[in-house]
């Protein structure tokens, strides 16, 4: 494939991936409102279109038309920059996430992934770490006490849980021996006894999966770890002073992060897109994408379910949980996994 075709194919893939991601983000908000609504004995959005399916569009329009207020004593450049950092980093990580095997369109054979890099996992970890800057800067530059407390909480929480999150992935890496997300998925192909899939989750990494879920909830500031934006304590945390599209950008970043985290969970622990494949060629190439989307959906659903069930931790309890429980557990998991692999 020539360089021109390569760039063209990449641009098309970027456009499609962005469109899918942003739609997923928009409709995750609707899903969340509907599911939480039904958990809580109410309907959720039901006015804009049948079952409220145009609600995300209405919300988006509303955000665009809202007045964009900048507090008078805010540090304006950083105040503007913070939501941009938050959203761009959240969207960037999707670039290395594979959503299916190779696909053939005409004479072009290309992976269902924007960039198949051999350090994909490291890129995602790195980019999400940069995302902390968005939150921390938002909290600091707003020049509001609630924002500052929220920003401090968020930075401390995300940095702490980043460690547990990173360590929980090492077990998987020991098994696979590669940072490439595609290699990790390929290594989980096949089954035992014909029906137990060889997912990392079933290969002894369930402790890691548990740690990953906990840390992921904390990374994305979701209940029970939503302290940075605990509305009953800090009003809205780091985005208290933000309005209009700037607020929407934080909002989108949060949901894009949720999608990324769910994709990573599917790839690392749940076998990526593995699943029965049948039918004509076009169905055969798209069915894996469906299996992948199903896992992501299930993960998002659990996110929302947890939100409808649990109360919130307190700040010191959250830190204690991360450092005194998750971190030792993650290290123990690495040791045990290494021993198992070494003794094999």
């Amino acid at each position: 494939m020539g360089i021109g075709t390569y760039i063209l194919v990449s641009l098309v893939k970027i456009a499609i991936a962005l469109a899918i991601l942003l739609t997923a983000v928009a409709y995750t908000t609707l899903l969340e409102r509907k599911v939480v609504g039904h958990i809580q004995n109410r309907w959720g959005p039901s006015r804009v279109g049948p079952f409220g399916i145009w609600q995300p569009l209405a919300d988006g329009l509303k955000f665009i038309f809202k007045e964009d207020i900048t507090p008078p004593f805010a540090n304006k450049p950083l105040y503007m920059l913070a939501p941009i950092i938050a959203l761009t980093t959240a969207l960037t990580s999707i670039a290395v996430i594979p959503i299916g095997p190779w696909i053939r369109v005409g004479s072009i054979n290309t992976p269902l992934q924007i960039a198949d890099v051999n350090i994909g996992l490291l890129i995602i970890l790195g980019v999400t770490s940069v995302g902390v800057y968005g939150v921390a800067l938002a909290g600091w530059s707003s020049n509001s006490k609630y924002s500052m407390l929220g920003g401090l909480r968020a930075s401390a929480q995300m940095v702490s849980y980043e460690i547990a999150l990173g360590l929980s992935l090492i077990g998987v890496l020991i098994y696979t021996g590669s940072f490439s997300l595609r290699d990790i998925v390929d290594s989980q192909a096949g089954t035992w006894l014909g029906f137990i899939p060889k997912w990392n989750l079933f290969r002894g990494q369930f402790v890691a999966f548990f740690i990953y879920i906990m840390a992921a909830y904390a990374e994305t500031n979701r209940i029970p770890f939503d302290l940075p934006e605990a509305e009953t304590e800090l009003v809205a945390g780091y985005h208290t002073e933000y309005s209009s599209m700037k607020f929407a950008m934080f909002f989108m970043a949060e949901y894009a992060n949720m999608v990324t985290v769910a994709c990573l969970a599917s790839i690392l622990f749940l076998g990526g897109w593995s699943g029965p494949v049948f039918g004509p060629p076009i169905v055969q190439s798209l069915l894996p994408v469906f299996w992948f989307a199903l896992r992501v959906f299930a993960f998002m659903f659990i996110y929302i379910w947890v939100r409808g069930t649990l109360p919130r931790f307190r700040y010191d309890q959250l830190m204690a949980f991360g450092w005194k429980f998750l971190l030792p557990l993650a290290i123990a998991n690495i040791v045990v996994t290494s021993l198992v692999v070494a003794l094999k």
Partner: peptide, 13 residues
């Protein structure tokens, strides 16, 4: 009280 501590569902129940 439950909503203050983050348990939103109890509020609606």
């Amino acid at each position: 009280h439950a909503m203050d501590i983050g348990a939103m569902t109890v509020f609606l129940y």
